[in-house]
């Protein structure tokens, strides 16, 4: 018997939310690092983190300034922010409860434990003093669930939906990080080689946990062009757009094997993947980096909608 549409939707969202919790933690970590350097641009940096998280309007309904304490707590634990770490962990667990019969007990218990631990860690406002511990905990719990998924789940359609949710969220996240900062990657003579540029590049790499791996691969060439190529086109990099889309295409292809008729979501995913596969980064810059990223964000959103429709999540 094929799985329920509701179950497929629950798995997809459970793993989107878990991925989002980790991405938000990573963004906060990056902001925190800049704040530690005592740089005057800290508030600007916190603002761009709020923008990247896609919650700018919600945030401005509550606060006028991008003060560190406000931003941290808004992104970690504010109930009014549906993308706060606590909100998405609640949603992930709620979805996990809904699809519990599809999960191994290890995956369910890891998810439940994450929720219990973070709920108590985030019960009170988080200060700079304990921020690092909280962020570590968020990342560790996300890894715990992922580890349980890889180690204990059958490689069947349940797994496919879990992975598709993860990579749709990740593709969206990476494109947003780049788009908010795209201007520092543009080949503009005025900035090249300045210390400000280096700090910004480092921020981008850290917010996708790629600072060291980038260095390792590109020792000789730390340029905007190389950074963009790494995060957009490099299939070795697990958070690059090309990597995410190759995984989405792969998992959708498995699902297509049992599907009668066309699978529009697979066609959409293939089209986006073709724009990333064997591409030269110079052509992306020619096309316009910002335009390219905007189109990526839009096509990921369209893809998510099509997946929801193809597999009858809601009707």
């Amino acid at each position: 018997m094929p799985m329920l549409g509701k179950t497929a939707g629950g798995l997809f969202w459970m793993f989107r939310y878990l991925e989002r919790s980790e991405n938000t933690a990573r963004l906060l970590d990056t902001g925190f690092r800049i704040a530690l350097t005592g740089s005057e641009s800290a508030e600007v940096e916190w603002e761009s983190i709020i923008t990247t998280a896609g919650v700018r309007e919600l945030y401005l309904e509550k606060y006028d300034t991008f003060e560190q304490g406000h931003v941290i707590n808004f992104l970690l634990r504010d109930k009014d922010n549906p993308s706060s770490v606590m909100s998405v962990i609640e949603m992930a667990r709620s979805n996990a409860r809904m699809v519990r019969t599809a999960l191994s007990s290890e995956v369910w218990e890891a998810t439940n434990e994450s929720w219990m631990t973070l709920k108590s860690q985030l019960a009170r406002p988080v200060s700079v003093k304990n921020l690092a511990d909280v962020l570590t905990s968020v990342r560790q719990h996300s890894s715990l669930v992922r580890g349980a998924l890889h180690g204990t789940m059958l490689r069947n359609e349940i797994f496919d939906f879990a992975r598709i949710g993860t990579f749709v969220e990740r593709a969206d996240n990476t494109a947003r990080i780049l788009d908010v900062k795209y201007y520092v990657l543009l080949p503009s003579a005025a900035f090249v080689g300045s210390s400000m540029d280096n700090a910004q590049w480092e921020t981008i790499l850290r917010s996708v946990s790629a600072f060291r791996s980038f260095r390792w691969l590109n020792e000789a060439e730390t340029t905007p062009r190389a950074i963009a190529a790494f995060l957009i086109l490099d299939k070795r990099m697990p958070r690059s757009l090309a990597f995410c889309y190759s995984k989405i295409v792969g998992n959708l292809s498995y699902l297509a094997q049992n599907h009668v008729g066309d699978l529009p979501s697979l066609e959409l995913a293939r089209k986006t993947y073709d724009r990333l596969d064997n591409r030269d980064i110079d052509r992306v810059f020619d096309e316009g980096l910002h335009e390219f990223l905007e189109a990526s964000i839009a096509s990921t959103a369209r893809l998510a909608g099509q997946i929801q429709e193809d597999f009858r999540f809601y009707g």
Partner: peptide
Amino acid sequence: LVEASDLRIVDGRVAMRTIR
């Protein structure tokens, strides 16, 4: 494990909405 919103009557049988 189904909720009522997963079910519908199809050709005189109770049927559940699956991904196919």
